[in-house]
Each structure stands twice: as structure tokens, then as C-alpha cells.
Computed example of a mutant assay.
Amino acid sequence: MGMVIGLTVLIGLLGSLMLRELTLRQRLLAIVSSREAEFRLLAEASNDMVSRIAFDGTLTYVSPASLRVLGWPPESLVGGNALAGLNPEDRAAVEGVVAALKTGEREEAMIAYRTRHRNTGTVWLESSLSVTRDPKTGRVDGVVAISRDVTEHKQLEGHLSRLATLDSLTGLANRRFLDDRAERELAIARQSRSDVSLLLIDADHFKAFNDHYGHLAGDNCLQQIAAVIQSHATRPSDLAARYGGEEFALLLAETNLAGARVVAERIRSAVQELSIPHVGNSAAPVVTISIGIATAGSQAGWPSLKGLIAQADETLYRAKSDGRNCVGNDLPLHEAPPIQPGQAPPPTAPASQADQTAPR
């Protein structure tokens, strides 16, 4: 929390500096179409890079700040294309704004984008754009751009965003991010009539572990379990999360019950193979986990996220009731007993289907 507050204060200070520069920007834009000499005087005193761009995209003037902002002196840029060095992923957005300015649809705009610095690689710039008009015809004849480097600000924003979505101890996604992602995956599954599975994973007798070995050892244990779970989130759509305390979750999109059980058993086995001593564990002399599974899909239907979590929690309870260190599922116990250590998953789906839904 202290780090988040510190970063927030730092962003606030940067904002104050930006406000001071914005005042100068506004003065520049106010005289763009009037006194050229005063325009250049202010432009060359600004810490921001000021440039004039002709209607065809050619740079006709660049202020000395270009050396600091882009690593190039003005004379190296004048005559070139204003969009040279623009990151391809940002080109469409920038070109769209420029097109609106050219047609007179917009008089001013502000946009952030990535471009290439001569020495340091990719940097983020934020540019205030304002059209210029021919004094005789009144038609748009170009644009004035006032640009500043916001790379550090973007990095701070990214860091704050990561802090807001990740668990600080394990580096996995936190509960809030899991809930948001699971809601989206359920919506996609309903629309596409596909499967999505959720594993709830609990460290067996973890309170006894903490009481015997201490909280530092407990933190290290949770980190090792988290690393195992993360290693099984092998597809971009998979999401490993810390659910709370000693509980974890793994969201598996486009994965049916059979595929989820295969993944769950692999995780259970890998955690046991860590061989972390646990004298207070009734299931084994080492740290073990119990896993519950819930699957939404064409067979089970697509419940709400709350319903899916409740199903997974129920099957986790069943796994614990059956001695822990095993995998439960979302079918009645008499139809599909939990997977015990070393036991292969039951044939709830053809082998080829299980392979397709959990190619791990």
C-alpha cells in the first residue's frame, strides 16, 4: 500500500509539471496563426518539442527540444515525414486524428503514441495538435504539434496497474482480476456455446504448517505452490490467481471437465513432488493440495460466476472429505469419485477430446 501511495504522489508531482508546460502550450497555440516571430521565440524556449506540419505531412519547422525528446537535431527532421518512426500499432489511431484535423472536423486534438528515439529506442510521446489555416482562404493548411516525452509517466501507470491486478506475495492475478476475467470468459462461452472450467485449489492443513514452521516458511510454501500453478497456465486464455489465503484458482477457457481433470491432477502431483516437509498433514508427510473443479458448458449449462465458484467450492469440499491430496469434480460422488494420487482421470470424454481441450 505504501508503494502505491508513493507512486501516486509521484504521478501527482509529474502532473504539476505537466500543467506548467500546458500553460506554455496554450500560449503557443493562441498565436500560431498570428505573430510568427513570437511563435518561434516561445517554441525555442519550450521544453516540449514544437513542430509545424504541412498539409502533406512534411515537417516544416522543429524546435531545438527535438534533440532531447527524440535524440535528433531539428535540421535532421525538417523536410521529413511527421509520422516517421511511429509505432505500427499506433499508426491507425494517429492517422485517424490527423485526417479529422485535415478535413476541419476537429480544430484541436491530443493523442499519446509510441515512436522511435534515436538513442534509447521506443518512447511514449503526448502531442497537442492544432490546425493552422491559410490567412487568405481560411482553409486548413497544416498542423502545429507540441509534443513531450511521457515514457516515465506511462511506466508508472503500468506499474500501478500491475499492482492493482496482481497478488503481491505470489505474483499471480488477484481475486478482483480473476472475477473480471472469469465474467468475460463465461460471456464468451455462452455466446460461442463452448466450455470453460475453474479449478479451486487449497493447501491441505496450511494453518498447521504455519503454526509449526512459521509464517516466513508459509509464505515461501505459497510462492512455490503458486509457481507450479502458473506453470500450468500455458495458454494466453489461462489465468492463475490467488483466491485468498492458502486458496488458489486456475481459469481454463475452452476446456471441458475431462481436460480440466487432467490439468488438475498434474498440478496436484507436481505440488506433492516439491517434497516440502509438513508434519501436520494427515494426507502425506509433505505439502499437498486438494482441488475442486466446476465446468460450464453445453452439458452443465452456463451458470453465473457466483454459481460456478459455488460449484467449484462444493467439489473442493468433497475432495477434502475424501482424505485431501486429491481432485474432485462437479459430478455426484457416486458417478465420478475423486482422483486419488497416481490414479488416471476417468473416461468422462473421448481421449481425443480431452487432448484438444487441455494440450499440456
Rank of each mutant, 00 (worst) to 15 (best):
M1I: 12
V4H: 05
L7M: 15
V9E: 15
T23R: 06
R25G: 14
R25T: 15
R25A: 14
R27W: 02
S34F: 09
R35F: 05
R40G: 07
L42N: 03
N47A: 13
V50W: 01
R52H: 14
I53D: 09
F55Q: 12
A65M: 06
G71D: 08
E75M: 09
E75R: 10
L77F: 03
L77P: 00
A84G: 11
P88M: 10
A92L: 07
A93C: 00
E95P: 06
G96F: 01
A99Q: 13
K102I: 12
R106F: 06
E107F: 01
I111L: 15
T115Q: 08
W124I: 08
L129P: 07
L129H: 01
S130K: 10
R139T: 11
A145K: 08
I146E: 07
E152Y: 12
H153I: 13
Q155E: 12
R162M: 13
T165V: 15
L178S: 09
D179V: 09
R181S: 13
A182V: 07
R184T: 13
E185H: 02
E185N: 02
L200I: 15
L200M: 15
I201R: 07
D202M: 04
A203E: 04
F206K: 05
A208R: 07
F209E: 05
H212N: 10
Y213T: 08
Y213D: 08
Q223A: 11
A227W: 00
Q230I: 00
S231C: 01
A241Y: 02
A241P: 12
F248G: 08
T255H: 01
L257N: 01
A260H: 03
E265R: 00
V271L: 06
P277A: 10
P277E: 09
V286D: 03
V286F: 12
G292A: 05
L308A: 06
I309Q: 10
E314L: 08
A319H: 01
D322E: 13
G323V: 06
P332C: 06
H334C: 11
P337E: 07
Q340P: 00
P341R: 00
P341M: 03
Q343K: 00
P345C: 11
P346T: 04
P347Q: 11
A349V: 15
Q356L: 14
R360V: 13
